[in-house]
Design a protein around this nucleic acid. Structure first.
Lengths: 184, 184
DNA sequence: TCATATAAGTCAACATTGCTGCCATAATAC
DNA sequence: GTATTATGGCAGCAATGTTGACTTATATGA
């Protein structure tokens, strides 16, 4: 693979630049090649980032959906079911299936809301927090290596671009998280 | 979370400090808060990036798996089934199911290998290329907005970090693609 | 206070996309 | 000529997403 042998109906005519130095950003800024590259980057980075935790999850008979729930409950102790649904963007039924398992194993606990007793505020139990941390550590290794290799400036760029890709409500979420983390 | 308030699961009472300035990166570089943030960034950015194409895929009765195949076949015309399996990291059966549909709709064509006639070299047909481009354009909007807003330096950092997160073979792949695209 | 809206739980049924194991065919390689 | 490789196909299972309908408890507002 890799080399286009036959045809390739796309790229009508590309101007060629000889070398291939640092960053050949000449024409319009986000050129097609860069956008294409981004598609691949998203695929591979997401795949390998999640794979790190999948190994542990497999041992426990859990899946990525459980990890996502643990992560967001861990970051937002006392979150309501509705709010968690809003973050994950899945249906109540999909979340219920996951939460039932997590509560069955004692990783997540519920508490009625203080002001609104219809709510069931979700939190990690000690063992849930331990598991979530274990999953986190499994991803941390790969991630911190990437961060260290790239440097603080690159990490800042990474954060900016990732933030820009997500929709507004997600941006607001990470902005708040960021603020919260910083002041804690 | 970052700060141990009580033990480490929830936080009944948070100590609050007033301000919340720029970026307090003092301690070790990739501090926990940053790693935690990255988990959220990966989730939201991937979710919204793929969602853009999902709308179109739904109309056609296709899924993300079909999009991924179209993307990598489009980027690597004449790729063998084995190589595509290596990129996608799924089983032969999972890919076969997807390819059967794509060939049934006439989006993908096969040709026997020239040197090894066991191979079935995969390429996009004209209509496959059109569809792939349509899917690409749906993601491009969001992505190029993010790129433009962040700027070339940030994009470079984004690329570096994403590359560092993926495993070695994926890094080699994107390095080759990068070189190929740049010189084309 | 009664009507309506909201938070949450639950059931049944279904689709997509992974996986395993097993087997077949054709072509290559030693 | 036998082993290996590239591909294809079948049966069946698991995880996780979906819809739609219905219930219960609680909150809220006219």
């Amino acid at each position: 693979m890799s080399e286009p042998k036959i045809e390739l109906r796309e790229q009508p005519g590309r101007t060629r630049l000889e070398p291939r130095q640092a960053a050949p950003i000449d024409r319009q800024f986000p050129c097609e090649a860069e956008m294409r590259m981004a598609q691949s980057l998203m695929f591979f980075a997401y795949r390998d980032f999640t794979n790190a935790a999948d190994v542990i999850l497999d041992e426990l008979g859990l899946g990525r959906a459980h990890h996502r729930a643990l992560h967001f409950i861990g970051r937002n102790p006392g979150i309501t079911v509705t709010d968690l649904l809003g973050i994950l963007r899945i249906t109540k039924q999909s979340l219920a299936r996951v939460l039932t398992v997590l509560m069955g194993f004692g990783y997540v606990s519920q508490a009625p809301g203080r002001t609104d007793r219809r709510q069931r505020l979700l939190s990690l139990t000690p063992s849930g927090a331990t598991l979530e941390r274990r999953l986190f550590e499994s991803q941390r290794e790969r991630l911190s290596a990437a961060y260290l290799a790239a440097g603080a400036t690159a990490v800042d760029g990474f954060r900016q671009v990732m933030r820009g890709i997500m929709d507004e409500s997600a941006q607001r979420y990470v902005d708040n998280t960021d603020a919260t983390e910083a002041e804690e």
